[in-house]
Write a protein that binds this DNA or RNA. Structure first.
Lengths: 273, 273
DNA sequence: GTTCTTGTTCCAATATTTGAAACTTGGTTT
DNA sequence: AAACCAAGTTTCAAATATTGGAACAAGAAC
């Protein structure tokens, strides 16, 4: 499927285990596996050794291993977006009192990397790490709209176009038109396209070169919130997105330039230390 | 290092990138890498293709990829501990008004999988996924104490025994004695062994067969909290741990038994659909 | 224009992965 | 108690992927 040599195949197995929402037995995996028994067996061994999978001897089941949680923690923290955006999300959420999402694109899907919920306490991993469709959510469309031609085309082809509600834009043509409007307007709406009763307004987070770093959205319920109310928040939302982008770039640069800057002054530069 | 074929080597590279807290360049990685240039290069390509790494073309840097966050979300949710423990943590934290940690052992270290902080809002990945030492934290010692002989020996050998404070038990002998006391007592203390001014009380979460599923702790500051106060919470803490263990086992079983029960009725069973 | 430094590609030697089949294990039926 | 069966584990020669030295771009620095 992925093709990338042994590592790719091992990742496929990992995904397969992830796809079952619960601990799963060897035989069950074998049924759906493209690999023969011995091969699958060895992959599971390897992945378990690496603690990417955990094996429960009592029930003879495999599930995703804790090492992933550890790596994800590192990934989140060293991401150039999430840690930087955090205080901005706090502030934005406090000012506007509505649910705020920070998302990135992953494999044509929306990956939520952080969230603030004004009323109820924050939920942990159940939100960070969650994925959603790109073609029918506010953040998804906002990010898709500002993608370079080639990448956009590729991602549009990856969408499922499932009709979640009567408002879902369930074909590439309508979506493409919508994306054009989003670029012109500068922000995206979700008009109950994913879930009935849920509306949202979103903007992309763009680097100075126009790269899509992520997306930021404000979500409301049709019972309590109207589009006019969301529209009034656009300036604040856009300013927050820009502030995040600016900081992300400023933070990102040092990792690379810090050495370089230091070296520029003293003409001859050594590697290491 | 890990040895496990190609997958193991790829994971080593991933860990190496994780070890730098920030985006890192090819040359920097190469310096510390046991692999020759071409090999490291191909690993980075593969990992980037798999979206386990993300490559930033602007700065020519690699960092951990978002796919990890996604996988960790799945790992957390399908873990037999964290999702089940969640409501219990909520309730416990509300009752006692102190910081509560849920942890598991990973590679001889304490991995925090969830947290409740009574006063400030929950922090996301910055807490879930965080790791700490096992030999000088409450949860760490509570879990170590109830490990089977062989595993315990192995993990004790893996500890760093760094003397964080003057109270740290910084050698295997003292630690072993402490673990014996913990087994006898049923719960563990952290007497400012990791951080000055921070004390804590912890219990293991044990399956009916005595397996260590995780650990649960209550943390306080010496300025506001005393050990007598923590001691008074032991019954509540222990009861919560037991409740979590019971539910974890009850939830775990069906995944395996559901099919078996169904199959037992109809004597001759085919594989596949 | 030349010289570094950094990153990328080639390809034959080499080591790893592959998978059919044989084997072990633990439980169930006759 | 023996035979049976399903589930999991190991074996080994053939097929395949990985390896890494060295040559090759592409920029930046001199």
């Amino acid at each position: 499927m992925s093709g990338d040599g042994t590592v790719g195949k091992a990742m496929d197995v990992l995904d397969q285990v992830a796809a079952f929402g619960r601990p799963v037995r060897f035989a069950t995996l074998l049924e759906d596996s493209p690999f023969p028994k011995a091969t699958l067996y060895r992959f599971l061994q390897t992945l378990t050794n690496q603690r990417l999978l955990a094996y429960d001897p009592d029930h003879q089941t495999y599930s995703l291993g804790v090492r992933l949680v550890r790596l994800a923690h590192a990934a989140w923290n060293q991401s150039s977006l999430a840690p930087i955006a955090r205080p901005h999300l706090d502030a934005l959420s406090r000012r506007i009192g509505l649910t705020v999402h920070l998302a990135q694109l992953d494999h044509g899907q929306v990956l939520y990397v952080d969230k603030r919920n004004a009323t109820q306490p924050v939920e942990m991993f159940s939100d960070a790490g969650k994925i959603g469709p790109a073609y029918c959510t506010g953040v998804g469309k906002a990010m898709l709209a500002f993608l370079p031609e080639a990448e956009q085309r590729q991602m549009l082809a990856q969408q499922s176009y499932h009709r979640f509600t009567e408002h879902t834009l369930a074909d590439p043509a309508s979506l493409r038109a919508e994306l054009a409007r989003i670029v012109a307007r500068g922000h995206a709406y979700d008009r109950e396209e994913h879930e009935p009763g849920i509306i949202c307004i979103a903007v992309p987070i763009l680097s100075s070169r126009g790269h899509v770093l992520g997306g930021l959205s404000i979500t409301g319920s049709t019972r309590t919130t109207g589009f006019d109310q969301l529209d009034a928040l656009v300036p604040d939302l856009g300013a927050t997105a820009q502030a995040i982008a600016a900081e992300a770039e400023a933070w990102r640069a040092p990792a690379y330039l810090a050495q370089k800057d230091g070296a520029l002054g003293q003409s001859n530069r050594k590697t290491g230390t």
